[in-house]
């Protein structure tokens, strides 16, 4: 399926939901306000996108926001299997909260949990949300945030 067709399909599927449909670096993308995320997801699920491939958190400290990207695709609809759609929502960096899409896509459970763990975004209603990869007693900046610095070494030997 060509990109234009995918965009057409998305527009048809998401009619009635306040969102921004477009192409970003060749990836069909739907940008929604966190409030509309659940509704958009529902519509996408209805149109055949049946699983989440990845939940990614991107930290933008300058803008004070965290972008959460759901990459969704389909196993069942042959024409959609080739398509991965990015569903993006931005949340405030100091109180990042989203409604979990677990109810719509159970496949997002552990992926959201990972994002909670490493990026500090809370997903309300996700039963699997917990310290997944980090130690249970970890406190501090979520490691994938930009202000969590790890040392970078230079080229020259320090003697």
């Amino acid at each position: 399926m060509k990109l234009e067709e995918v965009l057409e399909l998305l527009k048809a599927a998401l009619s009635g939901v306040e969102c921004l449909i477009g192409e970003e670096s060749g990836i069909p993308t739907v940008r929604v306000h966190p409030e509309n995320l659940l509704e958009a997801a529902k519509k996408l699920k209805e149109s055949g996108f049946d699983h989440v491939k990845s939940v990614t958190g991107l930290d933008y400290p300058d803008e004070g926001e965290i972008e959460v990207v759901y990459h969704v695709s389909s196993y069942t609809k042959p024409e959609l299997t080739k398509v991965i759609v990015a569903l993006k929502a931005r949340v405030k960096r100091d109180s990042p909260k989203l409604t979990s899409l677990y109810g719509i896509w159970p496949s997002s459970a552990y992926l959201e949990s990972e994002t909670y763990d490493l990026m500090g975004v809370e997903f309300e209603g996700n039963p699997k949300q917990r310290r997944l990869l980090l130690p249970e007693d970890y406190e501090g900046i979520p490691p994938l945030r930009k202000d969590f610095k790890i040392p970078v070494e230079g080229v020259d030997a320090v003697e």
Binding site: H51, Y75, T81, W105, P106
Partner: peptide, 24 residues
């Protein structure tokens, strides 16, 4: 298998015809 987003031979062993080598 579909709902949980399982991948690879595990997915195909459950009857889903899905292989990235063929899909994309």
């Amino acid at each position: 298998a579909i709902a949980l987003g399982i991948v690879g031979p595990n997915l195909r062993a459950s009857g889903v015809h899905y292989d990235v080598r063929r899909i994309e």
